[in-house]
């Protein structure tokens, strides 16, 4: 069954058209990779799905479980299970990572009418997940992303994702800025979340990440449209041949 349906999605930022009719269906429990050259609209697509202010949908629709999410606030979408792992996670001075996690988890649970997690229960989960992601407890006491290395920031994103248990996780270039060890740790964290209950959209430039997070479907995005869809082998083809031919396709 389709979890997410993107239908003929057109969107613009500051009056500039970025998405020009994206069609995409993500089934429950599947992992989709979206690849494409710089400026093809990958990040824009992720922001539009998450509801970032300033990203205006001019045509088309996005359905989650058959319900349009375009009229929903970002926090409403989050509570419905949409999670975006940011390419550049933001810093929040003075707010401990642990506090942030707890506030987020409970805000979502509350909105869904679920009881808040008790402190011991919450702590137990955080500690377990953090250990798996090789995140030191000391890091959880530090302010969110302040003074974190690139790798720490990305692992912190994966930790948030693990705690929030999304139904649709969008990973925007989670591999950028990571060395090979950090990439493996982050990818392991993501793979741990793979389940029939969690679908993923993995946005990346490179095949490298997809060696670790093996996708079910690969899409090529170019000039704001999906120009090719295939299996995981498509990523290998792209790695070998580049994006040139798809850029021409889209232009034609």
């Amino acid at each position: 069954m389709a979890l997410l349906e993107i239908k003929n999605l057109h969107a613009e930022v500051d009056g500039k058209k970025i998405l020009n009719g994206v069609d995409l269906v993500v089934k429950k429990g599947t992992v989709h990779a979206i690849m494409g050259p710089n400026g093809s609209g990958k990040s824009t697509l992720s922001y539009v799905l998450a509801g970032k202010p300033g990203y205006t949908v001019t045509e088309g629709d996005v359905l989650l479980d058959g319900e349009s999410i375009l009229g929903m606030e970002p926090d409403e979408r989050a509570a419905k299970g949409i999670f975006l792992a940011f390419q550049y996670p933001l810093e929040i001075p003075g707010v401990a990572s642990m506090t942030f996690l707890r506030t987020a988890v409970n805000a979502q649970r509350k909105r869904r009418g679920e009881p808040e997690l008790s402190t011991p229960e919450f702590m137990k989960r955080v500690r377990w997940m953090a250990e798996k992601l090789e995140i030191e407890p000391e890091m959880l006491r530090r302010a969110v992303n302040v003074g974190f290395s690139g790798g720490e920031k990305k692992r912190n994103e994966v930790l948030q994702m693990s705690m929030l248990e999304p139904r649709l996780a969008i990973l925007d270039e989670t591999d950028s800025g990571l060395d090979i060890d950090a990439l493996r740790i982050a990818a392991d964290g993501v793979n741990r979340l793979r389940s029939p209950e969690c679908s993923m959209i993995v946005i990346t430039h490179y095949q490298r990440l997809l060696d670790y997070i093996v996708p079910d479907v690969v899409h090529v995005l170019s000039k704001g449209r999906v120009v090719k869809t295939g299996g995981k082998e498509l990523a290998h083809e792209l790695e070998a041949r580049g994006y040139a031919e798809y850029q021409d396709d889209a232009a034609a």
């Binding site: 606030e73 926090d75 506030t103 987020a104």
Partner: peptide
């Protein structure tokens, strides 16, 4: 937006940032 993407309402987000 980062805070709201994690599920905080606009007011919760401001309160969190200010408390920090």
């Amino acid at each position: 937006f980062y805070c709201r993407q994690r599920g905080l309402s606009a007011e919760e987000a401001v309160a969190l940032v200010v408390n920090g």
